[in-house]
């Protein structure tokens, strides 16, 4: 099998380029490519969201994403996985995360893709803030809601 090229950046501040991620894992040995895109949704528990804002502990997030991908490639035979997570502002409808899993057959491609997105949500040190018209709150930390709240600027 073709040796894996260096991974594209794990974290990006701009739009995710799905074609580049796909090209990074597709080879003639892979007969199945399964893609998951997590996209910014307008409603959250009945409230209208204007924008999602993401931040990460970048050095740890990169390590964790690399470990999650390595785990999936080991567990699902022949699988090769590319991942990119967006940081900063993510407008509604745009992708905040992409997982592209290539495998010789579809069963492993679906399974690897699912495994990786589930592990990212559970383990990667990345945080999502929902920006509403009148304030903002970090998901999973509802007490962080502040009218008009804006976090201190990231470095």
């Amino acid at each position: 099998m073709t040796p894996a090229p260096p991974h594209l950046p794990w974290l990006t501040r701009g739009a995710i380029d799905l074609a580049r991620l796909t090209a990074a894992v597709a080879t003639v040995e892979h007969g199945a490519i399964c893609t998951f895109l997590g996209t910014a949704r307008r409603t959250s528990e009945g409230r209208e969201v204007n924008l999602l804002r993401y931040e990460a502990y970048p050095e740890m997030a990169e390590k964790e994403l690399a470990a999650i991908v390595a785990e999936a490639e080991q567990r699902f035979a022949g699988a090769r996985v590319a991942v990119q997570h967006r940081l900063g502002d993510c407008p509604l409808g745009e992708a905040s995360v992409a997982v592209v899993a290539a495998a010789p057959h579809r069963v492993a491609a679906f399974a690897a893709c699912r495994h990786v997105i589930d592990a990212i949500k559970e383990r990667a040190p990345i945080w999502k803030q929902e920006q509403f018209r009148d304030g903002a709150a970090w998901v999973g930390d509802p007490a962080s809601y502040e009218p008009g709240a804006r976090p201190p600027a990231a470095d």
């Binding site: 740890m60 995360v97 990667a124 990345i126 945080w127 999973g140 930390d141």
Partner: peptide
Amino acid sequence: ALLPPVSGG
């Protein structure tokens, strides 16, 4: 580092 509950994806 102090990590609040993660919510990536």
